[in-house]
């Protein structure tokens, strides 16, 4: 997601707001294919540690990633509120990421998104493209391409 595009469009963008730990995160809705309940995940031996395994999504095999482990947070605790968000990314295909809870869909205007908090040095923040302000609440917006990028994490 190029920042320049967001600014020049001046349009609003929709984000799905999810909870991971105490923080709220936003996912660009254009990448979201589906949101499914937690289901049994088949472990894949020797895969990257943050990959929980694969699931059967209506006959398709979909890899499921723990965004918590990828961000070096503590491991997921699956509850009734846990969901798998299925993202469709053009070149690489489909991937699921586990979140603690799905809250709502918000619309954010470009002027309500602050990109300045992004600091390249901090690893955890490198998955964030900016912070959106929705009333009083702050939403960290995921940079989806960074989240699913595998190149530096082999």
């Amino acid at each position: 997601m190029g920042n320049a595009i967001e600014v020049s469009e001046k349009a609003t963008k929709q984000y799905i707001v999810v909870k991971i730990g105490n923080e709220q995160y936003g996912l660009d809705i254009s990448y979201v294919d589906n949101i499914v309940r937690m289901q049994s995940i088949t472990r894949v031996p020797k895969a990257q540690t943050y990959f929980k395994g694969i699931i059967n999504l209506r006959g398709e095999i979909v890899p499921v990633m723990s965004i918590r482990l990828k961000m070096e947070l503590e491991d997921d605790k699956f509850t009734d509120a846990s969901r798998i968000i299925i993202l469709k990314i053009e070149e690489q295909g489909i991937i699921g990421i586990i979140v603690d809870e799905v809250k709502e869909v918000v619309e954010l205007a470009a002027e309500n998104i602050d990109h300045s908090t992004k600091t390249a040095k901090n690893d955890k923040n490198s998955f964030i493209s900016g912070v959106g302000k929705n009333g009083d609440e702050l939403i960290s917006l995921f940079d989806i391409s960074a989240v699913v990028d595998e190149s530096e994490n082999i």
Partner: peptide
């Protein structure tokens, strides 16, 4: 079925 491109098994 393929495991897809994400999982480096």
């Amino acid at each position: 079925k393929s495991l897809g491109k994400f999982i480096k098994n």
